[in-house]
Amino acid sequence: MTDRRCVATSPDGEGCGEHVEPGAPLDLCGAHFEVAHDWVAQTSGTTDLLPSPCVACGSRLGVRYPSGWLCAVCEWRVGDAPDGETVDPRLDVVYYLRFGDRIKIGTSANPRQRFAGIRHDEVLAFEPGNRLTERRRHRQFAAYRLGTSEWFAPHPEILAHIDVLRAGIDDPWAQYALWRSQKAALRG
């Protein structure tokens, strides 16, 4: 077994020459490995804006690693191309929209497309669920329903429910994207 010595040099060209631990992947002593780690850690694992939106979920937030970028929402590797046979997973959600002083409670498997046809000021929240969950919410808040529509008065009970759904969520779309990516990951 050979005695390995650190190959690091100082800015003035003086070599370290300290002993290298057996099994070390590079000829660096422990102190120089720590210096190298600290330097890499300045940017590795740092959350920042992606160079372009994630192709899997559309998020703009990513985590930078020496090997490249990962989406901070769905962990898709930036630069990887989806295979041509990938089909978006169906994810039914109950949505809560605000338009003026009214709240709409509806359901959709494609909320972006659905919302294009609905006048609204704000997406308040999503919750996983299908028509059964939607009907349950309509019954739960029936006292505040406007006529026979899916629109409701913004009663404190409804607003409290929306607050629970939004707890810790700044952007309902980011939560929706996360649910979709999780469902896609579970499909394999």
Score class of each variant (00 low, 15 high):
Trp76Phe: 06
Asn130Met: 08
Glu85Lys: 07
Val20Pro: 04
Ala160His: 08
Arg4Asn: 09
Pro172Trp: 02
Leu91Tyr: 04
Arg4Pro: 15
Arg131Ile: 12
Glu75Gly: 03
Ala160Pro: 05
Leu61Phe: 07
Ile162Phe: 09
Leu124Arg: 03
Arg135Thr: 02
Ser67Thr: 13
Met1His: 06
Ala56Arg: 09
Tyr95Asp: 02
Pro111Glu: 10
Thr107Phe: 03
Glu150Cys: 09
Arg98Ala: 01
Arg112Met: 13
His138Thr: 03
Leu124Glu: 04
Ala177Glu: 10
Arg135Met: 09
Val20Thr: 05
Lys104Asp: 00
Leu91Gln: 08
Arg139Pro: 04
Cys16Gln: 05
Ile103Lys: 00
Val164Tyr: 01
Pro51Val: 08
Val63Glu: 10
Glu18Lys: 15
Ala24Lys: 05
Asp101Gln: 04
Gln175Val: 06
Gly58Asn: 04
Ala177Pro: 03
Asp3Thr: 09
Leu49Glu: 11
Thr2His: 12
Gly58Met: 02
Glu34Gly: 12
Cys16Leu: 07
Glu122Met: 10
Arg145Thr: 11
Glu122Gln: 14
Glu14Tyr: 14
Arg114Glu: 02
Arg4His: 11
Gly79Pro: 04
Trp39Asp: 15
Val63Gly: 05
Leu49Pro: 15
Gln113Trp: 14
Asp48Ile: 03
Gly17Val: 13
Cys16Lys: 08
Gly84Val: 12
Pro82Asn: 03
Val35Lys: 15
Glu75Ile: 01
Gly106Gln: 02
